[in-house]
């Protein structure tokens, strides 16, 4: 793996509620390169703009100004329809609250991101089961997600993020609600994925995360600006 640039941000700003009284400048003029195959952690206090930056990087939202290039291709002005397609192929998301769909089994939740692509059902099921067993959750496949423990829910969320086999995995505050053992388990999974060649982008203000050995880059944010890079 060479340390080439996978995602490149140029002067990216994001303003929430633009033009309204409750306008917020969440991210201001950020220049940032994300390296391929590396683990990058966005660090900063709550409200510093980590999540907002993550949504821009992950094509969930368009920047208010500035450019985002993915693999050299400018995607900042792209219509939502195509941005969605790119996002689906490129990014897997593990949300802060996991956001699994209640009432559905773990297996169904994992298969969900692939529905619009409509791969053969048998193949998809196989793939979801493989991911579950990789994460040692095969016994929970048919369990409704609301019955899962915190760690199990997180691993289900990781499996869901991986089902489309995206090259980039994005996780927002992955260890916010986890105890030490589970945090260590998460870091273990992250390391495995890195070893498989995935690019990981995490946000965290948890030293256990950004001081972990496998982390390659740490970008510290403050008030929507980059304060420090490592």
């Amino acid at each position: 793996m060479t340390d080439t640039v996978l995602i490149s941000l140029k002067k990216v700003s994001k303003i929430h509620n633009e033009g309204r009284p409750n306008e917020v400048q969440a991210v201001v003029g950020i220049d940032l390169d994300i390296a391929r195959g590396k683990v990058t952690v966005l660090r900063g206090a709550s409200g510093s703009g980590k999540t907002t930056l993550l949504t821009v990087i992950g094509c969930l939202a368009r920047p208010s100004s500035g450019r985002v290039a993915l693999d050299g291709r400018d995607i900042s002005g792209m219509p939502e329809r195509f941005l969605t397609r790119i996002r689906q192929e490129t990014f897997g998301f593990v949300f802060q609250g996991f956001n699994l769909l209640r009432g559905m089994s773990a297996l169904d939740n994992i298969m969900l991101p692939a529905y619009p692509q409509a791969p053969p059902h048998r193949w998809l099921r196989r793939r979801a089961l493989d991911l579950l067993s990789m994460l040692r959750l095969e016994h929970r496949a048919d369990t409704p997600v609301e019955m899962l423990s915190g760690g199990e829910a997180q691993r289900t969320a990781i499996a869901r993020a991986l089902v489309n086999d995206p090259p980039i995995l994005i996780a927002d505050e992955p260890t916010a609600n986890l105890d030490t053992a589970l945090t260590r388990e998460f870091l273990g999974i992250a390391e495995t994925l890195k070893a498989q060649g995935k690019t990981l982008i995490l946000t965290s203000h948890d030293p256990r995360v950004f001081e972990a050995g496998m982390v390659d880059h740490v970008v510290t944010l403050r008030d929507g600006r980059v304060e420090e890079r490592r």
């Binding site: 969605t84 689906q88 998301f93 956001n99 969900l112 991101p113 619009p116």
Partner: peptide, 19 residues
Amino acid sequence: ADERREIGVLKAIGWETSD
């Protein structure tokens, strides 16, 4: 709120508006 969240999740994990 629950349904709204569900649609949000679907869109976030890669579903398109037309889906």
